[in-house]
Design a binder for these strands. Structure first.
Lengths: 344, 344
DNA sequence: AACAGTATTGCAAACGTTTTCATAAAATTA
DNA sequence: TAATTTTATGAAAACGTTTGCAATACTGTT
């Protein structure tokens, strides 16, 4: 059976094999109800025998959709966007789409380039992370009429549709949590905020909350770390061994928090008696670490799902392009890495 | 500038805007050296002004490559395949390709379906994980002449090209590590091995190594857990609280090990004095956990890179389809979660 | 038996590009 | 200046599908 077909099997070979026209084969694949059951059987057999796989490109050129969706994330390292990617994927696959994935490594110039590629491939819709994008990117998006959604971030005046959380709120919740536990000597470990609205919003809100609480933080207690466990660990090691007196750490996300936690434990600090650590994100695994990480949950799965659905919906109804903004609530997950400032 | 072009901008609109033929525009995009510098400038301006993005589908239909590569992984959850995906992506993007990602959730029937979709989209090459695939999948792969590589696993008699590690070796190394430390009361936490050659190879090798060492393991010490931290944690909690006397745990991968570690610490066990835990994989973050996870490294990044390169190479030189098998060495990473059996 | 209605199929145009071939214009040579 | 070569461009065919329209073959009704 199924001989090793050398070279292209097109719709015509199938038609010939089945003794029908190309049109009929096409109908078998797209509108089987329109073809005689007997013929259907024969054609299906021919399809199987020849190993025919229909060419999406050719049907796409006919005005058909490509049935692909582009997803642009900064990175796929660690589990930062893992749940987002997985749930977005699952959602859209269920709806008949295929995922084209692109990453840019937190570089918005690179983002523009990959976005262009996605557009060349005529993805039917695009999801990207966050709301910081280059002008070129925004212009490109505006010039094409492809549905777009920014996932992860929410802003009430975003230039494009967005489905995500308010990062300032996430930052505030994290800060309030530590403040409520009586912490006043707080260290901040965040990634560079340039070109990253998530980190910027979180950090700004944290700083604001602390200021409002009348707390002054020495510059030495503010440190930068990219989203890498190893890097965060080394940066925190330095911070915690040199700057005594810090009782709480607010981290830009759970990956950084993980590094912070690791370095603290290595230094023999008791968590949370000697040091409280709070992350942001609630990534897969954060709840099951030991000690379980206190963090601010961003509902990644739900965001991925909603973003996928929104895109598919917009493709189906190319309505007047109205901007949709959906805010996904952030929720504090107080777990084992935070406790009262007095260690009690 | 760049007006919000309603509806399709095709090569003809650009041609008209620039006062040239479609052929010239095409040449500007594909062979700029063939066109007069003055014309080039004019056309490029028209391209910018109209916001033209070339249609890959249309050029693909012309026998051109699609410039996409399919990557099929079981899941993108946690960081199990994160490094693989990221490095594969980075490698092929550098070489001008775009990544089409598919997941199947460890279900080989689902794998067949997503694979078909990838083929419909005419990806120029396909990478998938492991060597367990359905007959349908293998047949489909054989019937199309698209370069294929199985990443992650290595087997000297694989039906398709493979670039990866020998999972039996990984299992043996993990077992030998614990044996060398004097452990004889060893628990096994593995995922279902059905349709998963990685898990199966590892587990078989572990069992063999233990048998060779004259060790008999009670059935109660063999437990199943999918690749999920939460699930592994709960399964291990049960195992460790009911079955006393276990001094070492061999886990199917680092994610399971992470859950095991978490449950052990929660139970107040000292690691590694009371219990040694070894994982397999050395995923991103494993080295920086606390305590740092002892594990068997599978060089994911390198595998991703080599797989990407191999595919691109095969696309460039559609040589006689010779099967390539590259074995990536596994290396023991003894860290803080394993120690002598006597706890000394 | 003639008719209308319906079900099934094929023909051919169309989609947006690339590329071969031909032609025109410009540059070079004798 | 005429002949030749080179450079730049356009016209049209081709790629693998889908689909509107037309044609044919059935079905059932009188």
């Amino acid at each position: 059976m199924m001989k090793k077909q050398s070279y292209k099997v097109d719709i015509l070979s199938v038609a010939k094999a089945a003794g029908v026209s190309a049109a009929t084969v096409s109908r078998v694949m797209n509108h089987p109800d329109l073809v005689n059951p007997t013929t259907l059987k024969r054609v299906e057999k021919a399809i199987r025998k020849t190993g025919y796989v229909r060419n999406r490109a050719a049907q796409m050129i006919h005005g058909r959709r490509s049935a692909t969706l582009g997803l642009v994330v900064p990175t796929v390292n660690y589990s930062i966007f893992a749940e987002l990617v997985q749930s977005f994927n699952d959602t859209v696959v269920d709806l008949g789409f295929t995922l084209v994935l692109a990453t840019h490594g937190y570089d918005l110039t690179a983002e523009y380039k990959v976005l262009r590629k996605l557009l060349e491939h005529r993805v039917d819709g695009i999801a990207l992370v966050g709301l910081d994008h280059s002008d070129d990117t925004y212009r490109l998006l505006a010039s094409q009429d492809v549905p777009v959604v920014a996932a992860w971030s929410y802003a009430k005046s975003s230039r494009i549709s967005c489905i995500g959380s308010d990062n300032r709120e996430a930052g505030r919740v994290a800060a309030d949590h530590l403040l409520a536990l009586g912490h006043r000597r707080i260290g901040l470990v965040f990634p560079p905020t340039h070109e990253n609205d998530r980190a910027r919003g979180r950090l700004e809100a944290v700083e604001l909350a602390l200021r409002d609480a009348g707390i002054e933080i020495p510059d030495a207690w503010r440190v930068r770390s990219p989203y890498s466990v190893a890097h965060a660990k080394s940066v925190c090691h330095e911070l915690l061994s040199e700057q005594k007196g810090i009782t709480g750490l607010i981290c830009g996300n759970d990956i950084i928090a993980q590094g912070a936690l690791s370095s603290a434990m290595q230094l023999g600090l008791r968590i949370p008696q000697d040091l409280s650590i709070v992350g942001i994100g609630d990534f897969a695994g954060s709840a099951d670490m030991y000690p379980a990480l206190s963090t601010v949950q961003i509902p990644a799965q739900q965001i991925g799902m909603e973003a996928g659905r929104y895109l598919v919906e917009s493709i189906a109804n190319p309505d007047p392009v109205e901007i949709v903004r959906r805010k996904m609530e952030v929720v504090l997950k107080p777990r084992a890495t935070t406790g009262h400032a007095d260690g009690g």
